[in-house]
Design a protein around this nucleic acid. Sequence first.
DNA 1: TGTACATCAGTGAACGCGCGTTCACTGATGTAC
DNA 2: TGTACATCAGTGAACGCGCGTTCACTGATGTAC
Lengths: 235, 235
Amino acid sequence: MSWRKEERRAERGYHHGNLKEALLQAALGLIAEKGAAGFTFADAARMAGVSPAAPYRHFRDRDELLSSIAQRGFEQFEALLTQAWDDGRPDTVSAFQRLGKAYLAFARNEPAFYSAMFESGLPVDSNATLLVASERAFAIIRAASERLAALAPPGVPRPPAMMMALHIWSMSHGVASLFGRGDAARRKLPMSPEDLLEAEVLIYLRGLGFPTDRRPEPPPVPPAGGASGPWGASR
Amino acid sequence: MSWRKEERRAERGYHHGNLKEALLQAALGLIAEKGAAGFTFADAARMAGVSPAAPYRHFRDRDELLSSIAQRGFEQFEALLTQAWDDGRPDTVSAFQRLGKAYLAFARNEPAFYSAMFESGLPVDSNATLLVASERAFAIIRAASERLAALAPPGVPRPPAMMMALHIWSMSHGVASLFGRGDAARRKLPMSPEDLLEAEVLIYLRGLGFPTDRRPEPPPVPPAGGASGPWGASR
DNA sequence: TGTACATCAGTGAACGCGCGTTCACTGATGTAC
DNA sequence: TGTACATCAGTGAACGCGCGTTCACTGATGTAC
C-alpha cells in the first residue's frame, strides 16, 4: 500500500488540506479494528499518509484526539436519539421503543465511537465540552422518560423520570456492551439484542403500571390500582 | 522502593517460591490502577521483584496471564454469586435481590477482575476453560431465574428463564459499568447504584406479574390476571 | 549419611521495535500594498 | 496585476524510552544410589 501513500501525497501536494478530519477518521478506523486501547498517535498519522509529527499541529496529544472522537460520538449519538424519539410520535411508548433500538443500532454500527465514548477510560469530566455533549445525549432519554412518566395512568403513581431514564440507560448499555457488538467472538443469544432489549423495556414499563398494549397481543394488563411504586412514594 | 526489591530478593533468595501467584497479584494491582489496557508484562515482573524474563517460565505471554486473571475472576464471581443466592433462602425474591447486590459488590470491590473479565477485549472463546468459567458464573443467574420463573403466580404466564436471566444480567452489567465503579471521575447519581439496580429489578419483576411485596410498603400489586407476557406466548 | 547429577526457576545482558515528542526546516497559501 | 512578506501546515531526522522476547548462564532443590 505504499504507492497509495505516495499517490495521496502526490494528489494533495505538500499541504494535506483537511488533516484534522483525516486524523479523526483514521483514528476511528483504528479503534474499530483494535479497540480504543490499541490505537496510536503515530498509527493515525501513518494512516492519514502524513509524517508522525504532523498530528501535533492539530491535537495536543493522543488523549485530545481521543476525546475529540468521544465528543463527536456523543453529538452523533444525540442526533440519532433525537431523530428516533421524534418528539414522541406517533405515540410515546412506541417512540420510546425506537429510542432503545436506536441505542443498539448506534453501538452496533459505530463501535469505534461507542468505545471512545464509554470504554476508552478517559475521565468524563476531564473535558468540559465532552461532559456537555454526553449530558445532552442523556437528556434525550431523560426527556423521553419525563413524557412517558407524565402519561402514567390514573391511579398509578408517577415514577421519577430521572430514575426511569437511568434504568433505561443501564438496560440499553448492558445489552449493547454484552451482546450488541459486531466483534465476532460474542456470546451466543437465543434472540437478537434488539428483541431482548425491547422485551426488557416492555416488561419494565408494565412493571411501572403502563399499559403496553401496542404490541400484537391479547388484552393489556390492567393498571395496578393504587399501589405505590416499589421505590417508595412518588414525588 | 528499590530497597524493597532488594529486601524481597534477600528474603527469598534466588528462587521466588511462588512467582506465578505473585505475578497474578501484581497484574491485578496494575489493572486496578491503570486499567486492563495499560498493564504490561514487564511491569508485572518488576512489581514482583523479578527479572523481565522470569514471567516466561509461567505464562506464554501477556494474554495468557490476562486470561488467567479473567478465569480466576469468573471463579470468584461464581463463588460470590452462589453464596449470595444461597439456594433461594429465605425466599426466592429476596435471594434474587441479593444476587444483584452481590454483582455490584463484585464490580466495585474487584474492579481489576471485572475489567479483565468484561472489558479487557480478550475473546471469550479463545480459551476453553475461560469460557467454561464464564458460563458457570452465568449459570447461577440462570438457575435463580429458573426458580423464580417457576414461582409465577397462577394465571400469570411463566416467563422463559433464559430471557429473564439475560435481562437481569444486562441490568446488572449496565448499572455496574456505568455507575458502579470506584474510579473517581464517575457520573453523579441521585441514588446509590445498589438502590438503582434494586428498584430496576423490582419493577421488572412486577412487570412479569410477580408480587413484590417483601418491601416495607403498602399493598402489593395484584397479579395481572390472564394477560400473556409482552414477548409473546410462554413456553 | 554423603555425594553426584538432573532438573528447574530465575538472571542479566542483549536485540529490535515502535512509540511519543522535539526541532530546525521548507513548501504552500494568503494578504497588503 | 504583480510583488514582498508573514503565516501556516507538514517534513524528516533525531532522541530517549520501555516493551517483548531470546539466550546462554547459574544458583537452588530434589533425588538416586
